[in-house]
Design a protein around this nucleic acid. Structure first.
Lengths: 229, 229
DNA sequence: GACTATAATTTTTGATACAAACAGCGAAGG
DNA sequence: CCTTCGCTGTTTGTATCAAAAATTATAGTC
């Protein structure tokens, strides 16, 4: 009665060899170009030139446009083509308002759902980040900072939450690249992260929630200051 | 000093004649097909057949696929094509957890930002909905119910919030179509909406927040019961 | 007969050529 | 000075072709 064939061998079930569609390759290349400043806010993206430049045809490029539009990175006007979306201070406020409740929820859930393994992982990230802080290595500090927040959200074990969180935080990420925070702001951020780590280790959801909200409100001010050039 | 030309005539400034790209037409048609049960969860969408069926070529169809994937309606596996995403009870829980904090935020913001005009508009929707309830018109009740929630979110004046809210609630909407609630559940929902309307009129953000959260938790149970067939 | 390896078929994916629709621009004409 | 017309470049949509991968069918072997 072989209704369905089952694979018995030792084929790894979680490694589809990462076959990436050309479209996704184009998506990351375009994001890279935006991050690198090759494409700035308001730039037009003429498809023929980009096709030549990236060495792909229109099919994957146009699909990449669609996913970047849905992520809020690009906007297209009918028959006028795609441009890099420019964010206004207003938009920053709106996105941070949403991020605040999302991260609060993530913190609350993570305190319950997080494994000890994940907690230890976050702690390691935290320690590396504090080391970067002491060495005044801004680049590394911000990278690890971001990884910590993502790890907390992931530890909440809610894919729907992760998806919308990453969508919004990805949009904001492209701004804070010039990274011009004052030292005092930086000190505050580091202090806040110490408290956050404490609340995580205590699995104190309520406290964590409040800390994350305050942390995000401060971050919002820093990002808005950056946006104002 | 003619810095900018102003259109003086009677041309309405808010009607760009709604030029709709073919891709968006395809998006709504596919959604319609899913709502109508022509495409059920798990159905494959072979592009050649659909191209013929919808009378469009591959370009707009594939772009429509991309936006539906980003909305969570479809999923595509490399070289295996697109299928209608099937939601598990787990996914429902995840999405409702996020919706709960989003709608709570929306309620809080709406109490502050909402104009009297908008409040009156919501009140009218509410009264029509209660009339439908008394007449036991489920169809109309649910439609107005949904419109009320959307109006509250819109009144929060936060486009980023509206976007993620609509994304999630849109995914859930396609389930509750068979609409098999018991009468007692229906009565509870109506009562909750009376309280919600009260809090809105009082612009009592805190109370509204709690009411919306409870309302959503109940709705989650109803949807999950539906999903279990 | 059951299982496996090979071949044929189908489907997706990407590239390319072509036609139509539209926006932007500048010149001709009032 | 203002409008109108046509030109140009771009986007948008269609059609067709080829390659890659998956699915199915076929055959061969134990």
């Amino acid at each position: 009665m072989s209704k369905k064939m089952e694979i018995s061998a030792a084929s790894e079930p979680l490694a589809p060899i990462a076959r990436l569609a050309l479209r996704d390759e184009v998506v990351s290349q375009l994001k890279q170009m935006i991050d690198d400043g090759i494409l700035i806010a308001g730039s037009r993206l003429p498809e023929r030139r980009l096709c030549a430049q990236l060495g792909v045809s229109r099919t994957p490029l146009r699909e990449a446009f669609r996913v970047l539009v849905s992520e809020g990175v690009l906007e297209v006007q009918p028959h006028r083509g795609a441009t890099v979306k420019k964010l206004k201070a207003e938009d920053i406020d709106h996105m941070f308002q949403v991020l605040e409740v999302l991260e609060a929820l993530a913190g609350e859930l993570a305190c319950v759902a997080m494994t000890d393994e994940e907690l230890a992982q976050i702690e390691r990230l935290h320690e590396r980040m504090m080391k970067a802080f002491q060495q005044r290595d801004r680049r590394t500090f911000f990278k690890l900072n971001q990884q910590i927040h993502e790890a907390v959200v992931r530890a909440a074990r809610n894919p729907a939450l992760s998806k919308v969180y990453e969508g919004l935080s990805g949009q904001i990420r492209r701004i804070r690249y010039m990274a011009g925070n004052t030292d005092s702001q930086w000190v505050v951020a580091a202090e806040e992260h110490e408290k956050i780590m404490r609340a995580l280790k205590d699995r104190n959801g309520k406290a964590l929630q409040n800390l994350l909200r305050a942390h995000l409100r401060h971050k919002r001010e820093r990002v808005k200051a950056l946006l104002a050039q």
